[in-house]
Write a protein that binds this DNA or RNA. Structure first.
Lengths: 262, 262
DNA sequence: TCATTTTCCGAACACGGGTTCAGTTTCTTC
DNA sequence: GAAGAAACTGAACCCGTGTTCGGAAAATGA
């Protein structure tokens, strides 16, 4: 038997079948993780979709975190394909629009993934670092596009990191409500998200905007959005384990110690 | 002893202290749920923050889901305060901006909550229905503002439900990366989110926008965002349990049954 | 057909974490 | 300061769920 992840030399047919089945498992897990989250998803539920007992999964993955890791990697590969293409587009506007539309497409693919929505907590520190680094690369890429647009004047001024987080939040939020087979057309969804994120909801420029056509002031007392420095928290560090706390028995903070019974 | 949730008649001082402690627990749970999620949060970790054993929590809440429910209710109360004020504002633009800024403020409050980000799965069906209904009310309120703006022409045409989901996704995504004490100014954060969601990133109107000032076409092949019907999935139904599946032993779909050993 | 490999199952185990309970310490009140 | 209520503890319990393991069924390839 060829163990999980170990690439023994077998006949091509067998290996292809093995990989196919492995992909099926991944697909089932992907959907479950996306809809219910990692912790709320049981191996039984994944196996059930495949008409199999949960112990069968151990022929393809060493443990549950390994399945999560594979999901992460697969979705990250999708993202990298997107950014690779986006880099070759002309204007920042086109690049941003492409990223948004494709990200939505990935999110709404029947077997698609919700790339940045998965947790990294269950992974080992090394695996976490790997995934977080990939996430950061993607977030960085998106931020750079926005920043370039801001410098070029095609995007309004603001904190590019915040702007990128806003976009990613809206995109990843799709996993919370989108269900394949619904009445929503995935393509139209992408178009609306792109136009709304890039051009906004308002049909007339903001009162304080530095757009070409400046208009009469309205009743909005907002000042132009200031920019921040670069030392803010990053989405990739989400769920990173905190520094270890002292053991339970020694952590009775904020309360006078009592003698106890032992 | 006065049991959890039971309002026995005790002296006011005692009851006040009881409620104060209960609020402390809630605050600790709120932060933990927001950062790590419900399932990944252990009662030990909540109790630890308070310098107490987990069994002490049972003097204030009957069980873990009850704590989650209280978190939900508290955050929903915040949201309803927001919409109540927003209803009295003049233009749709002002109402939307107010909702966004206040929602951000709630999300970034040191002891604040991430209202719609909590799971409802662990709750009993009745509790779920309660929370989901409240969520839907809020989402509906936001959607109505957007829809009114679209009809009035101050917002560009599109599916108001999608638009509301986008906004909510961006707002709730804040819980994923914002950490109190960071370098980000919460107020500025709200301003940027509002202006970016309402006016968009682009400093010049969209090529296909129906804005007052129409401009030369660019290299963007997008068609105007179409609207959809009203039967799409709702964010409130997230994590609602699926219809029960047949028992494990009878669900061997997609594979020829084998005789088994018993 | 038959040996070998692959795939899967059932049972048992391990363990984390929610929950219960009796008892002890601390606070409140008169 | 004493009685009673409140707040909290430690130990035990229980159950879901991930994991291990030996063996059976199925598929493969000659």
């Amino acid at each position: 038997m060829i163990g999980p992840n170990e690439a023994h030399v077998t006949t091509p047919h067998v290996q292809a079948k093995y990989l196919r089945r492995r992909a099926e498992i991944l697909r089932a897990a992907l959907g479950a993780f996306r809809e219910r989250g990692y912790h709320a998803t049981t191996l039984d539920s994944i196996a059930e979709q495949l008409g199999v007992r949960k112990t069968a999964l151990y022929h393809y993955f060493p443990d549950k975190p390994a399945i999560l890791l594979a999901c992460h990697r697969e979705s990250i590969a999708d993202l990298e394909r997107i950014t690779a293409v986006a880099r070759q587009l002309g204007t920042e506007r086109d690049r941003l629009r492409y990223i948004i539309v494709e990200h939505v497409r990935v999110m709404t693919d029947a077997f698609g993934t919700s790339p940045l929505a998965f947790e990294v907590g269950p992974l080992t520190p090394e695996r976490q670092a790997e995934i977080v680094a990939s996430r950061d690369r993607y977030e960085r890429e998106l931020r750079d596009v926005i920043q370039a647009g801001m410098r070029a004047g095609t995007f309004r001024a603001g904190d590019p990191k915040l702007a990128a987080f806003l976009v990613l939040g809206a995109l990843n939020g799709i996993a919370r409500w989108y269900r394949p087979g619904g009445s929503l057309n995935a393509g139209a969804l992408g178009e609306q998200f792109a136009s709304q994120l890039i051009d906004g909801l308002a049909s007339v420029p903001a009162p304080t905007a530095v757009a070409a056509a400046d208009r009469a002031q309205e009743t909005c007392g907002s000042k132009p959005t200031p920019t921040h420095d670069d030392a803010s928290p990053q989405p990739g560090t989400v769920n990173t384990p905190r520094s270890p706390r002292p053991a339970l028995a020694h952590a009775r903070a904020g309360r006078t110690p009592r003698k106890g019974t032992r």
